[in-house]
Every structure is written in structure tokens, then in C-alpha cells.
Design a protein around this nucleic acid. Structure first.
Lengths: 213, 213
DNA sequence: TCCATATTGTGAAAGGAGTTACAATAAGCC
DNA sequence: GGCTTATTGTAACTCCTTTCACAATATGGA
């Protein structure tokens, strides 16, 4: 069983390897990659070894192959369809973000209760009313949703998503939502991130630590 | 030395306690709080004990006092001034996000190289050209910056920030930036978060884990 | 072909983080 | 006032993650 931190690292490796590949690098050692991503080379080797043994001694890893293997391990060899609930500020930023496609993630639809939010500034992604959500999830077999609604609506939205069959939720609302154990919830909390920084910066003794998630 | 995970938890406690306090709750036990935030009560007691001993046996913790203590511990008793570099999609979402003020965090200015991005839709926060950044940081004594520029500009921006005196960076660009050891960098990577979810949802065996950061 | 060396894969050690368990104790009730 | 009980603070334990260290080995050069 691979840990959730390890999964996050695999994702980081993948992105860096994609960049390397684009610049024509064909082989990379764990040491070089470690320097790039700021992670101990032994850690990288161990993470990769978990997926199989495909490094070559004295040479390193083939970037092309490694990207393929990481994509497969992460389940993003095929494009993953994701929906977004809440087309407010954060929601719209996500809709406009170009970076997901490259990582095999595709926001296919957004939903918002407010009709005004549904007339975007030329998004290619449609914004539907909330009551279309359930059907859409079922018909398109969506398994992952992003919640970007205000805190007070988050639990209700989560309940709806779960009952429609959603299995994983990325929650931007600054509140814990309660879901059945088979549903995975991951939180992104911008205020928490900033407070963490404030703490470490405020701490009088200088720390050598780089805070990485 | 308190760990970075612990700091993130303190921030979570604080927000939940603020909500409780707003609903008139004056005392809360570690058990109740644990249920709300989804964290083991003993963990909460341990985190709080690190800051001092101010629970009352058989009663619990005073919400008011706890919020004050947590705010102090996190360094947000006074409003923390933060600047934003990059007024693209993510940047604008952050500028519009109302939730920071309540947590004692204030984005006081934004900077973008593109003049078109500087004419916002009525943000109350000014967006300045990049070449004003250094002076602003010095004059306003800013210590924390948010990077929300494309990956290829991130390192250059980080270098500028550091040389102007920034001590903590929240980096939304999907790339590691290299900074001197005394500067703290924290990463928010949306694609990584989604990939992590994809992995756990794709994994055939159903996991009981709730992924929390 | 043989040697020197860079690099992998992994066992073992070290280091944290989270959980359990319980003694101490304050509060409320009889 | 004394008893019962909920709750804290923390010591000990377990579990998990990361780092270290090194044998195995593929490569390139002589």
C-alpha cells in the first residue's frame, strides 16, 4: 500500500520529468531529479522501485518511459473527467486554468445555483444549473468533483455529489465535510497555507526547513 | 519544535472555533472539536498542550480564549500583509477571495507584468507593474508573497522577491523554485491534488482513508 | 577484455507522528 | 461534604516515513 504523500511525490516527479523531456533530456538519475524537485534521491528511488524496476545502473531512468509509468500508476493515462461545483472566484479560476489538460485532467462541466454565474466570459466549459448535476454525473459517469462553493453550502453539495455516485472530492470550502468512508475528500485551504507561512516566517529562530506539501 | 502538519491543524482548529464562537458556543471539549474537524481528540489535546495548559478538566476549552491563543501562536493577532505576483486567473481569484480577512491575512497589493491585467473589474486591491514591486516590499515591509505566475517565470519572480526581502513564498506555479535556506516556500499544486484523488479513486480496492492535508 | 565508477535497488537504522491508555482533577449532584 | 464522572495532559507505544549505507551491476574507457 502506497502512502498518500508518496502519491503526491509521484505527481511531482511526473511534472518535472515532462519538463525535462520537453527540453530533450532522455535520461535522468535519481540524484539529478532529486536536486530539481528538492527530494532525497533515495526517497525517489524507493518511490519508483515500488512501481517496478526500470532504472539502469550507471545511467539512471529514461524520462519518456518514466512519464508513461507514472501516468499509468496515477491513473491518468486516459483523460480523467472532473466536474466543478461553484463558479465563483475560485471556480472560475479553475475553469480558466490551462494546466490540467497537460496532466490528463479535464474539467468537463461546472454547476452553479446562481444564473448570473452561468454566463461566463467565453469559457469553453459549460456552466449548468445545480439541478442538472445529478443527471450529468450519472450519464457521464463522473467520479471526481471539485467543491468551490461557500462554506455554508459545502456539506449539502457534498451530500448531493455522494448520492449521485461521486467517489472523490477536492474541497476548496474552508470547512470539513462529512462523507461515507468509501468517498475520499481532499482539502485545499488557502488561508491555512498562508497561516502556516505566517507562522514559520514569524518564528524568530530561522529555520532551514523548506515547507513542501 | 512544532511540525508543519501541527501548524496546519492549529489553523483548522482556529477556523472551526471561530465558527463555534459565532454560534454562541463558549466551551468545547477536545472530543467535540475532534468530531467537527475530523481529528483524533488526543491529537488535538497534544497540539494545544504544546501551546500551554488552559483546558479545564470536565469542561473543556473556552472557545474565545482558544481562538486568541491560536491566533497568537500562528502570528495573526495583527493583520499580516501579503502581496500577490501575477494577476492571471488564480491571482484574480485570490484577490476576490473574501475569506482571508477573517483569518487576519490581507492582500495589500498585486503585481503583474501585463498592463491589461492591471485594469481589474473593480478590485479594491491595486494591481501595479512588476517594476514597482521591490520598492513596495521594502517600504511596506512585506514578508510574505504569493506567486501565481506561469511556471517559466516563477524562478525569476522568486529571485526578485527574495532579494527584496521576502521571507515566505506561497507558490502556485507548478514548479519547484530554488531559494536560500532561510526563505520558506510552500506549494499549492492543483493538478497534484487532483491526481492524488484520481489515484485513490481509481485504486480498485476501496480505502477507508480520508485524505487530509 | 578488464577495470574504474556512477548509479540503482533495498535492508537496516533513525526519526517522527499519531494513538492508546491512564492518572490527575475539576464540576456537579445527592 | 463526599462521590461520581467527564475531561484534560502526558507517558508509552506503535506505526509509518525518511534517510543512510552498501552490495550489485551496467557502462565506458583503456
Amino acid at each position: 500500500m502506497i502512502s498518500k504523500q508518496a502519491i503526491a511525490r509521484l505527481s511531482i516527479y511526473k511534472r518535472s520529468l515532462q519538463l525535462l523531456r520537453e527540453s530533450g533530456v532522455e535520461q535522468v538519475s535519481s540524484q539529478t531529479l532529486g536536486r530539481i524537485v528538492g527530494i532525497n534521491p533515495a526517497q525517489i528511488r524507493k518511490d519508483l522501485a515500488y512501481l517496478g524496476s526500470f532504472g539502469v545502473k550507471k545511467v539512471g531512468y529514461n524520462t519518456d518511459r518514466l512519464v508513461a509509468i507514472l501516468s499509468q500508476a496515477l491513473g491518468v493515462t486516459e483523460v480523467q473527467k472532473v466536474i466543478l461545483v461553484g463558479a465563483g472566484n475560485i471556480g472560475r479560476a479553475l475553469l480558466s486554468y490551462k494546466g490540467f489538460a497537460k496532466q490528463g485532467i479535464n474539467i468537463v462541466a461546472a454547476f452553479d445555483i446562481d444564473p448570473a454565474k452561468r454566463h461566463g466570459e467565453g469559457f469553453s466549459i459549460p456552466v449548468y444549473p445545480l439541478d442538472k448535476m445529478r443527471d450529468f454525473i450519472r450519464k457521464s459517469q463522473i467520479r471526481i468533483a471539485v467543491i468551490a462553493v461557500p462554506a455554508q453550502s459545502a456539506q449539502e453539495v457534498a451530500d448531493n455529489l455522494v448520492s449521485a455516485g461521486i467517489r472523490g472530492i477536492l474541497n476548496f470550502a474552508p470547512i470539513a465535510v462529512s462523507v461515507p468512508p468509501e468517498v475520499i475528500v481532499s482539502y485545499v485551504n488557502l488561508a491555512t497555507e498562508l497561516e502556516r507561512l505566517v507562522y514559520f516566517v514569524s518564528a524568530t529562530d530561522i529555520r532551514k526547513t523548506e515547507v513542501r506539501r
